[in-house]
């Protein structure tokens, strides 16, 4: 009998500076999402989506890829912490996040000197409710009556989209990053979800 000399395989994951940065932003976004869940809402599903301020800032400072990471981490982690993972509300949040990320990917191609955080925030907010209402119609409420809520959700997206965009712009200014950039720079570093409101939960 001879003792085996092979060593067990060791896998070491070394987080990069990018990983730490994304994790920090995601933690802030998750904390805001959970805190916001405790706030009373005048209409189920209508929420300010304050976590999207973080995502907008990440979008404008570090680019679309980072913002997408933060946004999706927020959706998954907030659902796990809140106990809604794989529940209907989770899928609605996910649909809203994917739609707003897609729209932000496009809006970032607009000239940055002309379109700032408010534009990004507003279009993403509308995309967010659009994605959520489609999931609601196809899956949760198989009835056109769900569309009667669209005006309210649209109004909330408009108001919260503007407010979140202004706050993000102000934070960027404090950071000294608010100067208009070219469209190419915007492509390299931007885009994430900014739901002015969330329909879910």
């Amino acid at each position: 009998m001879t003792a085996s000399t092979t060593k067990p395989t060791e896998i070491v994951l070394r987080p990069s500076a990018d990983d730490y940065r994304i994790a920090g932003y995601a933690a802030a976004a998750i904390a805001i999402t959970i805190a916001e869940g405790a706030l009373p809402s005048p209409l189920p599903g209508v929420k300010p989506g304050l976590a999207n301020i973080i995502i907008l800032v990440v979008l404008l400072k570090h680019g679309w890829k980072d913002a997408a990471w933060v946004s999706l981490l927020r959706v998954f982690a907030a659902a796990l912490v809140g106990g809604t993972f794989l529940a209907p509300g989770f899928f609605m949040s996910l649909a809203g996040a994917i739609c707003s990320l897609t729209v932000l990917g496009l809006s970032c191609r607009l000239p940055a000197a002309w379109f700032g955080p408010v534009s990004h925030s507003v279009v993403a907010a509308f995309a967010h409710i659009g994605g959520q209402i489609v999931v609601a119609r196809l899956w949760l409420v198989p009835h056109d009556g769900v569309f009667y809520l669209l005006p309210i959700f649209g109004l909330a997206a408009l108001v919260f989209g503007i407010v979140n965009g202004l706050v993000a712009g102000q934070l960027m200014k404090d950071d000294g990053v608010a100067t208009p950039r070219s469209g190419v720079q915007g492509m390299q570093s931007s885009s994430a979800p900014t739901d002015g409101m969330e329909l879910s939960k």
Partner: peptide, 8 residues
Amino acid sequence: LTCLRPGD
């Protein structure tokens, strides 16, 4: 309001 840009 200074955060706003013309296209907004």
